[in-house]
Amino acid sequence: MTPLGTGAFIKGHGTGNDFVLLADPDGAAPLTAERVRALADRRFGIGGDGVIRAVRAGAAGDPALDDAPAGSWAMDYWNADGTVSEMCGNGVRVFVRLLLDAGLIELADGAAIEVATRSGLKRVIRQGALFAVDLGTFELGGDRLVAAHGIEVARPGLDVSTGNPHVVVALASADELASLDLHAAPVLDPEPEGGANVEFVVPGSIADGVGAIRMRVHERGSGETLSCGTGAVAAALATRHWSGDAADRWIVDVPGGRLEVEVDERGHAWLTGPAELVFRGEEIDGGVSRAR
């Protein structure tokens, strides 16, 4: 466990959804849109789908993060384009892994920590090398049309709220999923206020109460990513709805790996998956970095 000093960062990912991680316990170095864009730039910066600052609740400078019990840790998450985001399912697991690695918390196997996010407190349980996140209750909304490069006709998408807004679209085959070009953002009709993440899924089999799906995602503010935690949950919940609630546990395969989604007896959605830290370094020359 190694403390992080001023200007130091850790690079981490959850099933390929990657982040620049900064430890700022006392809130001495608030993020700005300009700094986030510089850090997340894959050519001139460190590179990542987003930037995460670990700060004590009460010192974050954001009422949505500071309205948490004293002593709580807050996840200040920003998209790569410099916009703030409510929540990140992969990011919150990597956030807890950062706290452990930096020696900021101790968390035994099976123990839990509550993390303040812009969509409320999220309970994270350590399960060996994996972390399970209680995303709380979810909401299924209405339908809207979704057009994307690689599919000839716009498809219906289901609104799903898992702390972040999502629109989930079912496709017929793995070939159709592979043919998508998600460099450009899908077009939603009507366009939701504030935008949404868009998940394209291919439902698989359901056996012994466990369902399987494959998914790709375009995240608002980041573009196509190898994985999206809250998006995997949204995709599983939409498929569960379409199947008549045939299963409460879902295996979600994304380009960056595999995640598990489960709906408990309270109607809470849980996301379980890995959290990896891959290197550490320090910022120099206004955003250029060197690994160490």
Results as ranks from 00 to 15, higher is better:
A232Q: 09
L171V: 04
A207R: 15
R93P: 04
V233H: 06
R43G: 05
D41S: 11
I46V: 14
D49P: 12
V55F: 00
A38D: 15
E265R: 15
V278L: 07
R56I: 00
V168Y: 00
A170G: 10
D181V: 03
A147L: 03
N90L: 08
L271A: 04
L271W: 11
L104D: 07
G103P: 06
G141E: 00
T117A: 01
E265G: 10
R35E: 08
P69N: 01
T83I: 12
A23L: 06
G50Y: 12
V92C: 04
V210E: 14
R118I: 00
L121E: 04
G273Q: 09
L104K: 10
R56M: 04
E139H: 06
G89P: 10
H13Q: 06
T225G: 08
P69D: 00
R266D: 05
A29H: 15
I113N: 03
K11Q: 09
V210F: 10
L271Y: 09
F200N: 01
A38E: 15
A54Q: 12
V278R: 14
H149I: 05
S222Q: 12
S227T: 07
G45D: 14
E260I: 02
M87K: 05
L31Y: 14
G91P: 14
A129Y: 07
D101M: 11
A154K: 08
G50E: 10
V92I: 14
G58S: 06
A8V: 05
S161N: 08
G82I: 15
D248N: 14
R56K: 09
G27H: 03
E86N: 11
N197Y: 05
T32K: 09
G244T: 05
D143N: 04
T2K: 14
P3E: 11
G71N: 06
A275M: 12
A108L: 06
S72D: 02
G163I: 05
H183M: 14
V94T: 13
P274Y: 06
V96I: 11
A275R: 10
R35T: 03
T117G: 01
V55S: 00
T272E: 11
R93T: 05
G103S: 02
L135H: 11
F19L: 06
C88S: 02
L98C: 02
R214Q: 12
L259E: 10
F200A: 01
G157F: 07
S222W: 12
G287F: 02
E265T: 13
E86L: 07
W270D: 09
F279S: 07
P274R: 08
R258F: 03
A68C: 06
G142A: 05
V263M: 07
G204P: 12
R93Y: 09
R126C: 01
V115P: 12
G7L: 13
P190Q: 02
G209K: 05
V254R: 02
R280S: 10
A238P: 11
A196M: 04
F19V: 04
C88V: 00
V153K: 14
P186M: 03
S119L: 04
P156W: 07
D248L: 14
R126L: 00
N197P: 13
L135G: 05
A232N: 12
V263S: 06
H13V: 01
L226V: 04
F138S: 08
E152R: 09
I113V: 13
W78T: 01
G211A: 02
P3M: 11
A269N: 11
I151M: 09
D253W: 15
G136R: 13
V36W: 09
D67I: 04
A29V: 15
A238M: 06
M215R: 07
A129T: 12
V252L: 11
N197G: 03
R214L: 11
L140P: 10
